[in-house]
Amino acid sequence: MHLRDKFGRPLRLAVIGGGPDSWIGRMHRGAAEMDGWFRVTAGVVSSDPQRSRASGLAIGLDPARSYGSVPDMLAGESARDDGVDAVTIMTPNDTHYGFAAAALEAGLDVVCDKPVAHDHAQASDLVRRTRARGRLFAVAHGYSAYPMTRYARHLVRDGAIGTVRLVQVEYIQSGLATRVEDGPQSSRLRWIFDPARSGQALVMSAIGCHAQHLASFVACANVARVMADVGTLRPGRKVIDHVSALLEFEGGARGSFTVTQAAAGAENDIRLRVYGETGMIDWSHREAGYLKLAMQGEPVRTIGRGDPGLPAEILALGRTPRGHPEGLREAFANIYAEMAQERMARELGEPVPAFPYPRVEDGAHTMAFIEACIASQEKGGWAQVER
């Protein structure tokens, strides 16, 4: 019998943030419900209580479960026999830690957008709270949940390219190539350009954390130390829009890291290359359904999602035959599906699957990585990443 059938119902999910006009809100809600593992049943979708209640109705919530504030929702849901099982957080960065901590203390599992906290100390506290409460905590690093990035990790873990020697990762965008902070959208984006709200380094909170996590995830190793150039490409900007760094991974592999949101003419793209003793793997978000494998002295192979011979756990991450595009929503859905299956297996006393979805410990490592990049810039040399 299917695990979901044994459990008898989808898990009930509350959303924090992500109103009707929010693309990330639609992404999370659609991903959570895509395979039937979750149902969105409650929420707080605006910091304004009146707007939150009205917007909750606009996304289909029961009026009684469309709340005006997060404390009201946590109290209201805990008093119900059919209260929510988990929350997903997609609010401005400076609220992530507080909302996540409150949800954990209420006994709920958490899915959180990145970054999970403002700094490493807060992120480490979330790790402690998650473990103490016996809860699950997933981070929405969707790039690590594509079938082909999972297969890349599989190849590295199984030694298909030998010991990893070099990792190159980049994430380039153009959204901040102009002075958008002075334009007509400046009021809507105000929180992004406030370092106290967006994080210690804007580009790292926005996209750099994705690049770092993907590199560590596929290479099967955390970053041990960095030497970074942290600053701005756009003159006069007060927030950080560019970081480049040399990396050393645990185990000795070297790496390079470049992220920016201020590259004029660029199109959203994240790319990863991992070189081992005997070959390399190459993945780009532009062709997310394919992975290139180049072994020394052999023709380059292009492996596609759904190809015969792929491991069963990789094939299970896809939903349509090869050649039918799948995208970021499906990758997000894989994270939701894996966390739901782990939750259901625990409650049913079934064997708990060892899914590799991004967890709060990964979020804590990201915050340590960001702080090490900043420390490297300030002192002008290599900086250790706190463990």
Rank of each mutant, 00 (worst) to 15 (best):
H2M: 13
D5G: 08
L11Y: 04
L13T: 12
A14G: 14
V15L: 10
V15K: 11
I16R: 03
G19P: 03
D21P: 03
W23D: 13
G25A: 07
G25T: 06
M27F: 11
G36S: 12
W37K: 08
F38T: 11
F38M: 12
T41I: 08
S47Q: 15
S47I: 11
D48E: 08
P49F: 14
R51D: 09
A54D: 14
G56Y: 10
A64T: 07
R65H: 11
R65A: 07
G76E: 07
G83N: 07
G83Q: 07
P92V: 02
F99L: 07
F99T: 13
H118P: 00
H120T: 12
A121T: 00
Q122M: 01
Q122W: 01
A123G: 00
R129T: 12
R131K: 12
R131Y: 04
L136Q: 05
V139S: 11
Y151P: 01
Y151W: 04
D158C: 07
G162Y: 08
V164D: 01
Q168K: 11
Y171N: 13
D182G: 05
G183H: 15
P184R: 15
S186Q: 13
R188K: 10
R188Q: 13
L189G: 03
Q200A: 12
S205H: 03
A206Q: 13
G208D: 03
Q212R: 04
Q212A: 10
H213C: 02
L214G: 03
A221V: 00
A221I: 00
V223H: 00
A224R: 00
L233S: 08
P235A: 09
P235D: 07
D241C: 09
A245F: 13
E248Y: 01
F249D: 01
G252W: 02
A262E: 03
A264K: 13
R271T: 08
Y275N: 01
T278D: 02
G279I: 04
M280A: 06
E287F: 12
M295P: 04
Q296D: 14
G297I: 03
P299N: 01
V300T: 15
G304N: 06
L310D: 09
L315H: 04
G318W: 09
G318A: 13
T320L: 13
P325M: 04
E326D: 02
R329I: 10
R329E: 10
A333D: 05
A333I: 06
Y336V: 12
E338M: 15
E338R: 07
A340G: 09
Q341E: 15
E350D: 13
P353V: 06
F355A: 15
F355M: 09
Y357M: 13
Y357T: 10
P358R: 06
R359T: 09
E361P: 00
A364Q: 02
H365T: 04
T366A: 14
T366C: 14
E371W: 00
A375R: 11
A375T: 08
S376T: 08
A383H: 02
